[in-house]
Simulated assay, not measured.
Amino acid sequence: MRDERQTGYAPKPVEGVTPVQRIEVTGRSVPCDGRIGMDGLGHPRVWLRIAEREVTCPYCSITYVLKDGAGDDDGHH
């Protein structure tokens, strides 16, 4: 689902339509273009910042989760 803190709304998940992808990452800044494991054109590349443990892309709803023990990079990634 989209992150309502970024977009002002969060649509209701639709089974078979809304991605349920959760991708583990090692850094707090992650790029997303919506093409991971999806057919289609994707979306413009955006950089997402993980403030706590995870962030959801406001375009495609893919969720990026910080791996345990990762992210102590103080924003330098």
Rank of each mutant, 00 (worst) to 15 (best):
M1A: 07
R2S: 12
R2L: 13
D3S: 12
R5F: 09
R5I: 03
R5N: 14
T7H: 02
G8N: 13
Y9G: 05
Y9I: 06
Y9R: 07
Y9H: 11
Y9W: 13
Y9F: 13
A10I: 01
A10E: 05
P13C: 07
V14R: 15
V14I: 15
E15W: 06
E15I: 08
G16L: 02
V17R: 12
T18A: 08
T18G: 11
V20Y: 02
V20Q: 11
V20L: 11
V20F: 07
R22T: 10
I23P: 06
I23C: 12
V25C: 13
V25Q: 10
T26Q: 15
G27F: 01
S29R: 13
S29W: 07
C32F: 04
D33L: 05
D33H: 12
G34H: 00
R35L: 06
I36E: 05
I36G: 02
G37W: 09
G37Y: 08
M38W: 02
M38A: 08
D39W: 03
G40C: 13
G40N: 13
G40V: 09
G40L: 12
G40M: 14
L41W: 02
G42H: 05
P44W: 11
R45L: 11
V46H: 02
V46Y: 00
R49F: 09
I50W: 05
A51E: 12
A51K: 14
A51Y: 04
E52M: 12
E52G: 01
E52I: 08
R53M: 04
E54W: 06
E54R: 10
V55Y: 00
V55E: 00
V55M: 00
T56K: 01
C57G: 01
C57V: 03
P58L: 05
C60I: 07
C60W: 03
C60V: 15
S61D: 04
S61G: 02
I62S: 09
I62N: 06
V65A: 01
K67F: 11
K67P: 01
D68K: 15
G71V: 08
G71M: 06
G71Y: 00
D72C: 04
D72T: 07
D74T: 04
G75H: 10
H76N: 04
H76S: 01
H77E: 10
H77P: 03
H77Q: 02
